[in-house]
């Protein structure tokens, strides 16, 4: 699976004037994988997806789509890309089938292939009964599905979906989820959401963003085989390097001066670390084992600052 890397982003950074919206984000995504981008509102999810889709250039960093550099050869890279922005980019005055035909033309599809692609997209997104209706008269759910049909039309390698289920009713959400799961086989999918169960239900991996930084990157649902993660808070700033050296500590990453995320090999390591913290006089304030529970993880990682 990892051999077929379709999306690779390195050191993405984006500034809006003084404000840093995104700082040092790295991502990789392989075919058959769904990556969830999670974060509170304003965390930089949409900024990230816009950079990845080539509609917003990063202030620093590189993006490669299927091995093609997005900034150096944008047209070649964008052929491999399907993008559904936050607001579905549909023309209210067009009919569904005409709109999709137009989108296909924009991606260079012609005649038979164009017709086949439109028919397939309409089928997949269940737009059959509205195909001759004017998009502006459709419900939000249908418009969202038209937007999704547009994104998958040209069978892109990478599918970027910005909050694809916003504004849909529960049944439609389920239909979209099923569709995304179905699309997984052929595409690499990255989608954002602030709805936790949705990410849990769909994603293989998750990236949690907070204030423009990736505070967590990891697999979801993988059984913690002895190894587990812990969030450590001290009264005085601990030295992460000293903890990394301890037996059983696989990784120690500082989230903030006084907050560390530790990856431990076994339960014995926990004791070792706790003793080390006390011995060093850093003052153990909080010891929070992170289970593979997304909600707990999310809250711990994004709402910690106020207390710290």
């Amino acid at each position: 699976m990892s051999s077929d890397i379709l999306l690779q982003a390195q050191g993405l950074e984006r500034r809006y004037g003084e404000r840093l919206a995104l700082a040092g984000l790295d991502l990789t995504l392989a075919r058959g994988e769904i990556l969830g981008l999670l974060g509170p509102n304003g965390a930089g999810k949409s900024t990230t997806l816009r950079i990845l889709s080539g509609t917003l250039p990063p202030s620093a960093g590189t993006v490669r789509l299927g091995g093609v550099d997005l900034l150096a050869r944008p047209l070649a890279a964008k052929r491999r890309l399907g993008y559904l922005p936050e607001v579905p980019p549909v023309y209210a005055d067009m009919r569904v089938a005409d709109y999709l035909t137009y989108c296909g033309r924009l991606h260079g599809l012609k005649r038979q292939r164009l017709l086949a692609a439109v028919t397939r997209a309409i089928e997949r997104c269940q737009l059959g009964e509205v195909r001759h209706r004017v998009i502006g008269n459709l419900s939000k759910g249908y418009q969202q599905r038209v937007g999704l049909a547009q994104a998958i039309l040209h069978k892109p390698d990478v599918l970027i979906l910005d909050e694809p289920t916003v504004g849909l009713d529960p049944l439609q959400i389920r239909a979209i989820r099923d569709l995304i799961r179905e699309l997984k086989a052929e595409h690499a999918i990255i989608f954002s959401s602030h709805i936790l169960p949705e990410i849990e239900a769909l994603c293989d991996r998750v990236v949690i963003l907070n204030r423009g930084r990736a505070v967590y990157q990891g697999a979801l649902g993988a059984p913690a085989s002895g190894a587990h993660e812990v969030l450590l808070r001290c009264a005085r700033a601990p030295q992460a390097e000293r903890l990394t050296g301890l037996p059983g500590v696989l990784e120690a990453a500082a989230l903030e001066p006084c907050r560390l995320r530790l990856r431990l090999a076994d339960a014995a390591a926990a004791e070792t670390v706790q003793r080390a913290v006390l011995d060093a006089g850093w003052g153990l304030v909080e010891w929070l084992p992170l289970e593979q529970n997304l909600e707990q993880l999310f809250v711990a990682l994004t709402h910690g600052e106020g207390a710290a």
Binding site: R50, S53, G54, T55, P74, L75, A76, K78, R79, L81, Y83, P85, V87, P89, V90, Y91, A92, C103, L106, H107, G108, Q150
Partner: peptide
Amino acid sequence: QAHTLPLLLAAPVS
């Protein structure tokens, strides 16, 4: 205004 420009910007169109 209608947020349709991203369609053109994300498409392989110069």
